[in-house]
């Protein structure tokens, strides 16, 4: 079986993640969508590393994981700071301006 199937699976997961980012109002859920997109990209990197029989793709995926971990730390800290300031983590707060 061709490893390209994993790339197709990665595209499907990426689309699901992007749909979650577009649809959900809860900041944490939208953030999980971003995580899913990063993981889909990782999966395609690993699949291409297997296709080309080189380790560079795996090292790239490793780097993506490190950056994702740092991003989660900062992002969740921002969510907590926003929650402290406004008692809400909805991404739709600007709608309140319309009254």
């Amino acid at each position: 079986m061709n490893p390209m199937n994993y790339v197709i699976l990665a595209s499907i997961l990426f689309a699901i993640g992007s749909a979650a980012v577009l649809l959900r109002r809860n900041a944490i859920v939208a953030f999980m969508g971003v995580e899913l997109m990063l993981n889909a990209a990782n999966l395609s990197l690993v699949a291409f590393a297997r296709i080309h029989d080189q380790l560079d793709g795996q090292v790239m995926a490793f780097f993506v994981m490190v950056v994702a971990a740092a991003e989660v730390v900062v992002g969740l800290a921002i969510i907590i700071a926003v929650f402290r300031a406004r008692q809400s983590i909805s991404l739709d707060e600007p709608a309140e301006l319309k009254g």
């Binding site: 790339v7 197709i8 577009l22």
Partner: peptide, 29 residues
């Protein structure tokens, strides 16, 4: 709109990636 955009993205990626024919290298590292 969001479902349409994400569905379009999925359709686009799957159709393009599905047409690719790369012969994978034999199992090495």
């Amino acid at each position: 709109i969001a479902l349409f955009a994400a569905g379009g993205l999925a359709l686009l990626l799957v159709s393009v990636v599905g047409r690719v024919t790369i012969e994978p290298a034999p199992r090495g590292v």
